[in-house]
Every structure is written in C-alpha cells, then in structure tokens.
C-alpha cells in the first residue's frame, strides 16, 4: 500500500548519520592507531589508506598486555574490579529483583518506582553524594568514630580498592536490577507453584527452576553493566584519583589528555573494543543457545 521506496527514504537520514558519526569515527580510531605522530606538535597524523597502515604501535601496545609488561597490571586490575563489582552487584541486586518480582504485592509498584528513580538521577550526582558521605569528615567516618569501630578515620577517597569497587557497584547496580527484574517477571508464576506442588522446598524450587530460568536474564543484565564498566574511567577518578586504582579507561584518557600519545591511545581503544566485542559475541551465542534449548 505504500510505495516501495518510502521506507528506505525514511531510514536514510538516520542511517547516514550513524555511518558518518558512528562508523566513520571508528575508522578514525583505526586510522590514528595505524598512523604516525607529528614529531614536533605530537599530534596524530592519521593514515587513511589501509595498504600503508603501520601496525607497530598496535603490536607494541598489545605486547604490553603480556604478563609482567606495562599494561598487564592495569588490565588485571580492571578485570578484577569489574568482576568483583559485577559479583557484588549480582549478590545484592538479584535478591532485590527477586523479591520485587516474586513477593512484593502491595508495595510492588512503589518499589519499582524507587528502583527506577536512581536510574534518572544523574550518575555524577550519585557519585557526588557518595563522595560527600565518604569524605574524611563525612557521615560514614562520623558514624564509625561515634561507634568506636575505628580510632582514626579511614581515608576512603585516597586510593582505596574497596572504595572503587563499591563506587562501581553503587553506580551501575540500578542498570542491573531493572533488566533482571524484567527477566524474573517473565517467569510464569505457576511454574514455581508446580515445583512446590511436586515436592520442592522453597530453596529447591529456586535452584532447580527460578535460577535456571533466569540465567539468560542474569547474563544479559551482567553484560549490560560489564560493558560500560570496562570503559569507565570517571568512577575511579572521583572516588580515588590515585594511580594505584586506575583502570584501562584511565590509561586511555591519559594517553589523549595527559601526555598526548594519540596512536597509543587509539590502539588501546581498539584493543578494548575488540575485547568487549568478544564478550558480546560470547553473550549472544549463549543466549541464542539458551533460546534454542527452551524452544527445542
């Protein structure tokens, strides 16, 4: 009923926009990574011709990720931070999502609203709030001193690993709970009743039915927060600011803004993207498999 050309024409402006400002910029990263650096001004001299690309910087950077080399420590730290923050978020977030989806009755809408609220409170505002609380004279230390749990106030914001991990959890957990909640809500309640009916205790029903059925949701929610966490550099800066707690994102930031080494920064960006693409691919394959299993 519509002319054939209509829909492509509708899509063209948006697609062109995404090509020019999403794909081409990515090509710019590659061009800078495989290009050279102006010896005097130290700015990038990108190389747009794939035939004359210079792979040296990328290879050197890649070699830096080998155990014991320049980026090994920072890479390891990033992975450990993300893994711990993710685990912490799941351990804290799953029970919350589970409770809201399964048990909250009269309070369900209120709780969902309260869970969604931090979603729309700017990340920077939440970090500011966090920093206010954990500052040397903040409420957390006041409380610890008052209870005599500590004698000298601990320095939370001066390069403390725990602070960065807690900061990451605090920053990203809302993005985990919501998709988890949606996934848990999709599980048919009667399936759980069937498990109880067939002799499964509440714990057994959880481990044999709820958990397996929410596996795709857990994976999806984990990917949703793991990807941006790997690219985070502002959280460690805000809650620590120390070189002891830098993540891979900080390293990229430094190569562009600190001592400008754009081709190294671009190489690191490429490596990070490739790493995340592998993660994403793993996720998509797992989900496709899980869907196939359920559907047969």
């Amino acid at each position: 009923m519509y002319p054939k050309w209509l829909w492509p024409v509708f899509a063209v402006p948006g697609v062109v926009w995404l090509i020019l400002l999403f794909l081409v910029p990515f090509y710019a990263v590659i061009g800078v990574a495989f290009g050279g650096v102006d010896p005097i001004f130290l700015n990038a001299v990108p190389n747009w011709n794939p035939l004359s690309w210079n792979y040296d910087v990328l290879l050197t950077t890649l070699a830096g990720f080998l155990p014991g080399n320049q980026y090994w420590g920072i890479f390891l730290r990033t992975v450990v931070y993300v893994a711990l923050a993710l685990t912490g978020s799941l351990l804290f977030g799953y029970p919350v999502a589970y409770y809201i989806s399964r048990h909250a009755r009269r309070t369900k809408m209120l709780l969902i609203a309260l869970i969604v609220l931090p979603f729309w409170v700017s990340y920077m505002m939440r970090m500011l709030a966090w920093v206010n609380l954990f500052s040397p004279s903040g409420f957390v230390n006041k409380f610890l001193l008052w209870t005599n749990l500590v004698q000298t106030p601990p320095d939370w914001l001066g390069g403390n690993h725990a602070s960065v991990i807690l900061g990451l959890i605090y920053g990203y957990i809302p993005y985990l709970i919501l998709p988890l909640l949606a996934a848990l809500d999709r599980i048919d309640r009667s399936v759980l009743e069937a498990a109880r009916d067939l002799g499964a205790s509440p714990a057994s029903a959880f481990f044999h039915v709820t958990l397996p059925l929410s596996k795709p949701g857990i994976l999806g929610a984990s990917v949703i927060i793991a990807l941006p966490m790997f690219g985070d550099y502002y959280t460690p800066t805000i809650v620590s600011g120390s070189p002891r707690t830098t993540m891979i994102g900080n390293q990229i930031d430094i190569f562009f803004h600190g001592g400008p080494q754009p081709s190294v920064g671009a190489s690191l960006t490429m490596i990070l993207s490739a790493f995340l693409a592998v993660l994403m691919a793993y996720y998509m394959i797992t989900i496709a498999k899980a869907q196939k299993e359920v559907a047969g």
């Binding site: 999403f22 910029p25 990263v29 941006p228 960006t269 995340l276």
Partner: peptide
C-alpha cells in the same frame, strides 16, 4: 552496547 568511552574517543 558501545561503552561511552569508545564512542567518546572515536
């Protein structure tokens, strides 16, 4: 799904 940092750099 692209981390903002990657988008920012590019």
């Amino acid at each position: 799904v692209t981390p903002e940092l990657v988008m920012g750099v590019s």
